[in-house]
C-alpha cells in the first residue's frame, strides 16, 4: 500500500508524463535529468566565472550558489535513469549504456559530487582563495562522471 503523498505524487508524475508524451515532447525522465544538469551548471558556472576572474568575487552570491548546489545534488538521481533511456535506444540523450551496466558505480559519482559541493559550500563565502581551493574538487566530480558515462556533445 502506497502512502497517500507518494500515491498522489505518483499519479501526478504519470499524468505529467502522459501529457508530455501526448504533446510529442521528450521522455520525461530525460527531461528531468537534463533540467537537473542545467541547474547544476547554472550555479557551477557562476562560481567558475568568479574563480576564473571573469566576474568579481561576491561572497553572498558565492555562498548562495554553493548552497544551492548542495541542495540540488541531494536529490535522488536514480529515478531519472530508467531502463531504456540510453543513447543507443533513444535519441535526444547523451547517456551512455555504460550507466546501466554499472548503476551503483554511476550513482557513486553523484555521492562524490554531493560531498564535493558540501565541502565547497562550507567556505565559498569566505573569500576568493577559499573558493578557488575547493571548486576544483566539484568540477573534478563533474568530469569524472562525464568521462565514463556521457557521449560527446555536438
Amino acid at each position: 500500500m502506497l502512502k497517500a503523498p507518494t500515491l498522489v505524487l505518483t499519479a501526478a508524475a504519470i499524468a505529467v508524463a502522459s501529457l508530455a508524451l501526448a504533446q510529442g515532447r521528450g521522455n520525461p525522465a530525460v527531461d528531468a535529468r537534463k533540467a537537473q544538469m542545467h541547474l547544476q551548471l547554472f550555479y557551477a558556472g557562476a562560481l567558475g566565472a568568479m574563480a576564473r576572474g571573469k566576474v568579481p568575487y561576491d561572497a553572498a552570491a558565492a555562498k548562495t550558489a554553493a548552497d544551492n548546489l548542495v541542495l540540488i545534488t541531494s536529490i535522488d538521481y536514480a529515478s531519472y535513469f530508467p531502463e531504456g533511456t540510453d543513447n543507443a535506444t533513444i535519441d535526444d540523450t547523451h547517456a551512455l549504456p555504460a550507466i546501466w551496466q554499472d548503476m551503483p558505480g554511476f550513482l557513486g559519482h553523484f555521492d562524490t559530487l554531493h560531498s564535493a559541493t558540501t565541502q565547497l559550500a562550507a567556505t565559498a563565502g569566505d573569500g576568493l582563495d577559499a573558493l578557488k581551493a575547493n571548486i576544483g574538487g566539484a568540477f573534478k566530480a563533474c568530469g569524472g562522471c562525464h568521462e565514463t558515462y556521457r557521449a560527446p556533445l555536438k
Binding site: G45, L47, F139, H146, P152
Partner: peptide, 13 residues
C-alpha cells in the same frame, strides 16, 4: 572546463 564550465566528456577527458 568549457566557457560555461561544463566539463569535457568521454574521450576528450
Amino acid at each position: 572546463l568549457k566557457p560555461d564550465f561544463d566539463s569535457a566528456g568521454s574521450s576528450m577527458a
